[in-house]
Amino acid sequence: MKAQVNGTSRDLADGTSVAAVVALVGAPEKGVAVALDGAVVPKALWGSTIVPDGGVVEVLTAVQGG
């Protein structure tokens, strides 16, 4: 199945969790948050939340700015 991860189309195995996507993009250990289809997924639910076909995942962290 396909999902949009940080604006890029990715082929993911069926049943891929949010936690797996976070690992896939190489996110740092701390200071990271995830939105799936426009809603925040709390960190405690990353492992149990499955990315659906056509899902839109955003993985964000803090950078220098402002």
């Binding site: 940080n6 701390k30 948050a33 962290t61 803090a62 950078v63 220098q64 700015g65």
Partner: peptide, 30 residues
Amino acid sequence: TTVAMRRVDAASRTGVLELLRRLGIEVLPN
């Protein structure tokens, strides 16, 4: 001190959060 929120990529490991924590400065996300 403010920080911005951006998509994770190779350039996002700047260590700015660690710096602010070490200096005891509160983080204000924008």
